[in-house]
Amino acid sequence: MDTKNQSTKRTHLIKLSVGTETVDDLAAWQATKRAQTPDGLPRHVTRMWPKREVEILNGGSIYWVIKGVIQCRQTVMRLDEYISQDGIRRCAIVLDPQIIRTQTSLKRPFQGWRYLPVSDAPPDLPKGRASEEPLPVELNRALAEIGVL
């Protein structure tokens, strides 16, 4: 089989992390039972099932916007059907528990999730910087606005 002709398209998702102030807040929320699948993985439940499922599951991530700035990402492992208490079918975006910090990038508010082309995704922070204390949100935003981060 010729692997050069196989589709290797990939896309990401981007989502506001509503109610979180920091990446640590996001991790704390995902550690709760309510935010996990029965097998203990973090998930984000959403109304809409992504039409580009194959591209997302081809190595895509969800990039989290916290306080107006993309700050981190998590690899999407699978999409599970989730029936909510009201009987409506929803999509559970199941995530790798590892949260990877990214270079910051300003993002205006939006509702729901959006597709994020690979070319527009901010790069991961270098390994040595991934464990550094994050800059204060205001300073981070100011540096991102002038293109320093």
Rank of each mutant, 00 (worst) to 15 (best):
Q30P: 05
E21Q: 14
I93R: 03
G59P: 01
G68N: 06
W49D: 13
L57A: 05
G59A: 10
Q74I: 03
G59C: 10
D24V: 06
W49K: 11
V76W: 01
I70K: 01
G40Q: 09
V69C: 09
D80P: 00
L26F: 05
I66N: 04
R101N: 14
R89G: 06
T11N: 13
R43N: 11
R47V: 11
L26Q: 01
V65G: 07
W29C: 15
Q30A: 07
L16V: 04
W49F: 14
S61P: 07
D25R: 02
A92L: 13
V45P: 00
W29L: 13
I83D: 03
G87A: 08
S84N: 05
L13G: 08
I66G: 03
G59M: 13
E53F: 00
T32S: 10
P38Q: 07
V69E: 06
L16C: 11
L13F: 07
T37D: 12
G40D: 03
E55A: 10
R90D: 12
R78C: 02
L16N: 08
I93M: 00
I88F: 09
Q98H: 10
T75L: 10
R73K: 14
I66T: 08
A27W: 01
I99H: 02
I100F: 01
G59R: 06
L95H: 06
L79V: 00
K15L: 15
D80L: 02
Q74W: 04
T11E: 14
V45A: 14
V76A: 09
T46M: 13
W64M: 07
D80Q: 10
H44Q: 13
L57C: 12
E53R: 06
I88D: 13
L79R: 09
M48C: 12
S61Y: 04
W64F: 11
I62M: 14
L57R: 01
G40S: 15
I93C: 05
L13E: 02
R52M: 15
L41F: 12
A35M: 11
G19M: 07
R10D: 12
Y63C: 11
I14S: 03
G40L: 13
V69W: 01
I99A: 06
Q74F: 04
V54N: 03
Q36N: 10
V94P: 02
K51D: 15
T46V: 15
R78P: 01
I99Y: 01
L41Y: 06
L16W: 03
L16T: 06
T20C: 04
T20N: 08
V54D: 15
I14V: 15
T32K: 07
E21K: 05
T11K: 14
P97N: 05
D39K: 00
P50H: 05
A92F: 12
P42D: 04
D96P: 00
T32Q: 14
E81S: 07
A31T: 07
K67L: 07
M77N: 15
L13T: 01
C72P: 08
S17V: 02
R101I: 08
A35Y: 09
V94E: 01
M48R: 14
G59W: 11
G87L: 04
W29T: 04
E53H: 03
I93H: 05
I99E: 02
W29N: 14
S17I: 02
Y82F: 13
Y82S: 11
P42M: 04
I66F: 04
A35C: 04
M48N: 13
P97D: 09
T102D: 05
E21P: 01
V94Q: 02
R101H: 10
I14Y: 03
A31W: 00
R52E: 11
